[in-house]
Nucleic acid binder design. Structure first.
Lengths: 348, 348
DNA sequence: GTGAAAGCGCTAACAC
DNA sequence: GTGTTAGCGCTTTCAC
C-alpha cells in the first residue's frame, strides 16, 4: 500500500470506489477476482486445491477489500463452527483459570476458538447458560466438574458432540474425563498430618461441591486414629478474609488446632495472616496446608504447604483429547487421572 | 414426565419415536405443533405476538423434542448475533479479570453472551484473534487498552459495530472509552510519597505499555524536587517472584530506597516478602505502594497501600454503554474517566 | 394472529 | 483446477 500523494492522508489509497464499501461478501470478492464463489471459498479454506495464480488474485482482492468471512454462514453450511464452549464457575480468584488458559491456548493453536461461559458460584445459571451456548453450535464442550442435573446431562448428550469433564473423577462420565480424586486428596493430607504426629486437626473449607468432598476424605483419613477433628465451612468462593474468619471462629469456639487443612490456598493464606495476628508461630504452634498449589505458595514466607494440582496439565490434556476427537481419531470413554501431590513447605 | 413402567428405566417416557431424533429443527417443531415455522420463531422470540393457546402448544413440542434453536442460522438471517467479543491480554493473575467478570455479568443480564479472546501478554496474536473474532459477527467489541496497530484500527472501524476501549484514556478513541490516566496515577503516587518526606524513591514496574506509562508519570511527579529515583523493569506479566527480584536487584546495585512504587499489587507483595527476608521493617525502613487495589491488599499484614482502581466499575460502565448503544439509544464518543485513588494502608 | 416467499452468506457434492 | 446447484436453519417482509 502506498500513501496517496504528498502530505498525510487518512486512508491508504483504495483501488476503486467500489472497494471501500463495508459488508463485503464472498460474492463481491468473487466478482472482483473474476472467479466463482467456490473458488474464493477454496482459496481461503483449502488453498492447496487452488491454482497459484488464482490464489494470488483472490488474496489480493481480499486484502484490498478488507473482506472478513462470515463464519456464521460458513458454520451453518459446513456444520462445523470451529468453536469449543468451556463452562467454568468463575474466573475471579479461581483455581480454574490456569486450566482454562492452557485449554484455550492449545485449542487456538489447533484452529479453534473457545467460548467461555461463566456459570456462577454456585452454578445458578448453568442450565440457561448451557442452552445459550449449545445454540451457537460448538464443536465440543469443556465442563468444570462432573455434577450436572439430569436435564443438563440430557441436553449435552442430545448435542451429540465430544464432551470433556474436568477437575474430578466419576465412574459415569458423559464422555471423556480429566481429573483426580478429591476424597483421595483430602485423605492424603490427613495421613500426612497424622504422620507428623499432629493430634488436634481442623478443616476449613469453602462450601462447594468438590471442597466438601476433600473434607470428607480428610475426615475419613483421620478416621478413629485417636485424633480430634473439627470442620468449619465458609461460603464459596473462598477468600483470604474467609480464611481469617475460619481460624478465628475455631479458636473462639475453644478449639485450638495444631494443624489446619484448608480447601484452597487463598483460605490458607488467610489462616496464616490470622495466625500472625494472634502471635501463633507457624508451623510450630499451627501447621497449615492449602490446596491448589498456586504460584504464590512458593514465594511467601513461610512458604505454604499445599496439595499441588497440575492445573495447566488438566487444560492441556483436555484440549488434546478434544482435538484428537475432532480430527476423527481418539475414542470415547477416555479417563485421565492427573493425581495430586501433597507438597511440604514452610507452613508444616 | 413419568417413568416408563416399573423398575428403573434410563429414559423418561418419550411421546413418540419421531421425537427422540436429534438435530431437531424449527421445521420439525412447526410440523409437530401444526403451525408454520414463523409461528414457532415468534413463540420463541416474541411470545407477546402469539396467541396463548398456540404458544402453549409450541412450548410443549419444544419441551418434548428438546429443540435447541440454531443461533448460527438465526444470527445469519437477522444480522444480530447477541454476542459481544471481549479482547483481554490474559486471565491468569490479571488485574483485568474482575472487569471482564463484571462486564460479562451485566451483558448476560441484558441477553448477550460474551466471547472472550485472550490476546497474550504482550498481545502477539491480537490481530489474528481479532480477525477470527470479527468473523463470528459480534454485535459489539470490548477492548483492553487503547493501543492498536493501524491495521487493527481499520478492521475494527470497518466492522461498523459499537466499540468500547477500556483501562486507559486517549484523545483519539475508536468509539467509546472507559478508563483513567496512568500517567496521572503514577504522578499522584509520587506526590503522595514526597509528601511523606521520602527522598530516595524507586519504581519497580512490569514491562508493559500501561505500567510504563505509570512509571513515566511517577518520574515526572518526582521531577527535580531534590529526591533520588531509580526504576527497575521486570518482564510482564508481573508476579510475586519478580517483585522480590526487583527489590533485590535495586539493593544489590547499591540503591537503598525508602519507598517503592510497584506497577502491580502482586509485585508489591513480592517486595514485601523480600523486605521481610532482608529484615527491613515496613513501612519504617521501606514503604511500599502497589497498584490495582486487589482484594488481598486489605487482608495481609501490614495491609498494602495501593492505587485503587474500580475494576468492576470499568466493566459495568463499559457494558452499560454498549447495551445502550445496542438498544439504539446512546451516542458515540462517550468518554468516562473512572479515576484512581491512592489508598494509604500499613505499608506506607 | 398467522403464513408464504425470499433470502442471509456460505459450503457440500457433484459435474466438467 | 473450477464452476453449478442446492441447500444449511433461521428471520424479514409483506400479505391476509
Amino acid at each position: 500500500m502506498s500513501i496517496s500523494g504528498p502530505g498525510r492522508s487518512r486512508r491508504a489509497n483504495p483501488a476503486s470506489a467500489e472497494e471501500i464499501q463495508f459488508n463485503v461478501t464472498i460474492t463481491d470478492v468473487a466478482k472482483l477476482a473474476g472467479v466463482s464463489r467456490m473458488t474464493v471459498s477454496r482459496a481461503l479454506n483449502k488453498p492447496e486445491l487452488v491454482n497459484e495464480t488464482t490464489l494470488e488474485t483472490v488474496r489480493r482482492v481480499v486484502e484490498r477489500t478488507g473482506y472478513v468471512p462470515n463464519m456464521l454462514a460458513g458454520s451453518l453450511s459446513s456444520r462445523r463452527s470451529h468453536m469449543v464452549a468451556a463452562i467454568v464457575p468463575s474466573i475471579t480468584n479461581s483455581i480454574f483459570v490456569d486450566t482454562v488458559q492452557a485449554f484455550t491456548d492449545r485449542l487456538w493453536e489447533a484452529g479453534y476458538q473457545v467460548m467461555l461461559g461463566l456459570a456462577g458460584y454456585p452454578p445458578t445459571r448453568e442450565e440457561a447458560l448451557l442452552s445459550e451456548v449449545l445454540s451457537r453450535r460448538p464443536d465440543a464442550v469443556y465442563l468444570t466438574g462432573i455434577t450436572h442435573t439430569p436435564s443438563i446431562r440430557q441436553k449435552l448428550l442430545r448435542a451429540q458432540i465430544p464432551i470433556v469433564e474436568t477437575w474430578d473423577l466419576t465412574s459415569t462420565p458423559l464422555d471423556m474425563l480429566v481429573g483426580f480424586s478429591h476424597e483421595g486428596a483430602g485423605e492424603a493430607v490427613a495421613q500426612y498430618l497424622l504422620g507428623k504426629r499432629f493430634r488436634r486437626l481442623a478443616g476449613i473449607s469453602a462450601d462447594d461441591e468438590r471442597a466438601r468432598r476433600r473434607q470428607a476424605g480428610f475426615l475419613r483419613g483421620v478416621g478413629n486414629r485417636r485424633a480430634e477433628v473439627r470442620t468449619v465451612f465458609v461460603p464459596a468462593p473462598s477468600s483470604l478474609q474467609l480464611g481469617r474468619q475460619g481460624l478465628a471462629s475455631l479458636i473462639e469456639e475453644g478449639f485450638d488446632p495444631q494443624a489446619v487443612f484448608c480447601s484452597s490456598d487463598l483460605l490458607a493464606l488467610g489462616v496464616l495472616e490470622e495466625a500472625r495476628a494472634r502471635k501463633l508461630t507457624v508451623p510450630d504452634e499451627l501447621a497449615i496446608v492449602g490446596f491448589g498449589g498456586l504460584d504464590f505458595t512458593e514465594h511467601i514466607h513461610p512458604a505454604l504447604s499445599s496439595v499441588v494440582i497440575d492445573r495447566r496439565g488438566i487444560g492441556e490434556k483436555a484440549a488434546q483429547l478434544l482435538i484428537k476427537r475432532l480430527q476423527g481419531a481418539g475414542s470415547r470413554d477416555v479417563v485421565v487421572d492427573v493425581g495430586y501431590k501433597v507438597v511440604e513447605r514452610g507452613t508444616s
